[in-house]
Write a protein that binds this DNA or RNA. Structure first.
Length: 84
DNA sequence: AAAGTGACAATTA
DNA sequence: CTAATTGCCACTT
């Protein structure tokens, strides 16, 4: 299985109200140093089954999302009960 | 095969 | 606190 597939699978299982960092996803996917790659995957991934808005940066900030920037991402997370 | 891409991370100033 | 720097990796051209 490709790294990207594993990453998506993991992210798709993030329970509502919690978040993972890109680093964490990378680690769970089997490659602790592929945090960068995780971001790349999310940006190109169009899978609606994957709540990629629940993936944030390890420094606690939101990171990017799509064209709208991180605004929509932050909004979504706040509605799910995540403090940013 | 080599170079380019990007929603990251850790360090330093 | 922000900004710049360097290293990093999967994937695409």
């Amino acid at each position: 299985m490709l790294f990207s597939e594993r990453a998506k699978k993991i992210v798709s299982r993030i329970p509502k109200g919690s978040v993972l960092t890109y680093k964490e996803v990378a680690r769970l996917a089997g490659n602790p140093k592929a945090s960068r790659a995780v971001g790349t995957i999310m940006s190109n991934n169009r899978d609606i089954n994957v709540p990629c808005h629940r993936v944030i940066r390890s420094d606690g900030r939101a990171g990017g999302y799509n064209k709208d920037g991180s605004r929509q991402k932050i909004a979504r997370l706040r509605e799910e009960g995540v403090f940013l």
